[in-house]
Design a protein around this nucleic acid. Structure first.
Length: 279
DNA sequence: GGGCGGTACGTGGAAATAAC
DNA sequence: GTTATTTCCACGTACCGCCC
């Protein structure tokens, strides 16, 4: 029975092309993927893209690259759009996506296809860097001139403030701010110590090894005989607990139940700065 | 139903490395 | 020396299953 829709037809074509490619290079996984292309899970699609990129890197197979473009363009476009969403300047995501695939085509030699999600991670890095590069280029093209035009029409460079000049008023205010900050910091540490006591022994141990002893997550996970992912969650939840207890302490409402945990915790103070950049 | 522990996955920072 | 690319690691979210 022939495919009834353009999408189904395209799927059938790609499956056929995959089968030919897999047979040509004796690639078992690609052959297997060609049989059930429609029902591939996201992880299996990542694996397929990694295999195609591996073929392209190893044999310079143009067909593998063409199929890779077919299967990965949507994912790459999504990644590009995400990174461009933070750019102030209007940039065409399709153009950037094309540039990403050019880079993929140009630099296949260092690609390591041994891990399942290798292509996804690799492409993600390239997409991010390309988006950054294009964004910077756009910024340069629209840069504001530092030359100011005076009323008489004469142009002069904007004067740059001399940072070495000391203002007595600012000096006094800075000293006062520093004293206030020191007091706040002591209060902060006190509340932190109180909050730390509320953690379970496992949470205390995880936080201590990771933040005081400064071990890597991998080492802490090994020491606690748990998986790294579990450790991450243990630390994340411990921090969230501390955040909640300290929040109540600072608000003076100690009777409030530990319930309304923040959905997101990023930033300087865990539990704040939704979606922000870590610092 | 809600808390807890776990897995899978997305995202960003930063260091290492390569290219120019 | 600077810029671009690659890789590793940390952090956080969504979702699921189990238990009380």
């Amino acid at each position: 029975m022939s495919p009834s829709t353009p999408i189904a037809y395209r799927l059938a074509c790609n499956a056929s092309r995959l089968e030919v490619l897999g047979a040509k290079y004796g690639h078992e996984r690609i052959l297997f993927s060609s049989k059930g292309l429609e029902g591939l899970s996201p992880t299996e699609k990542d694996r397929l893209c990694t295999d195609l990129m591996g073929l392209f890197a190893e044999h310079q197979s143009q067909e593998a690259y063409a199929l890779l473009y077919e299967f990965a363009q949507e994912m790459v476009l999504k990644q590009v759009r995400f990174h461009l969403s933070r750019s102030f300047f209007p940039i065409d995501a399709y153009d950037v996506m094309q540039e990403v695939f050019v880079n993929i085509y140009k630099y296949p030699t260092n690609f390591d296809a041994t891990k399942d999600g290798a292509f996804k991670n690799w492409a993600h890095s390239i997409a991010r860097n390309t988006a950054l590069k294009v964004s910077r280029r756009a910024q340069r093209n629209q840069a504001i001139s530092l030359i100011s035009r005076q009323s008489d029409g004469v142009e002069s460079a904007l004067e740059i403030e001399d940072p070495s000049v000391v203002n007595p008023y600012e000096c006094s205010a800075a000293k006062e701010d520093y004293e206030n900050l020191a007091q706040s910091w002591m209060l902060y540490l006190h509340f932190y110590a109180q909050a730390f006591k509320t953690l379970s022994p496992q949470e205390k141990r995880a936080l201590h090894l990771a933040e005081v002893e400064n071990f890597t997550y991998r080492d802490v996970a090994a020491a606690l005989e748990i998986r790294v992912e579990n450790l991450k969650m243990r630390i994340f939840r411990a921090r969230r607990k501390i955040y909640n207890v300290m929040k109540r302490s600072f608000s003076g409402n100690n009777a409030m139940p530990v319930k309304a945990a923040p959905k997101v915790s990023k930033g300087l103070f865990v539990g704040e700065n939704k979606g922000g950049v870590r610092g």
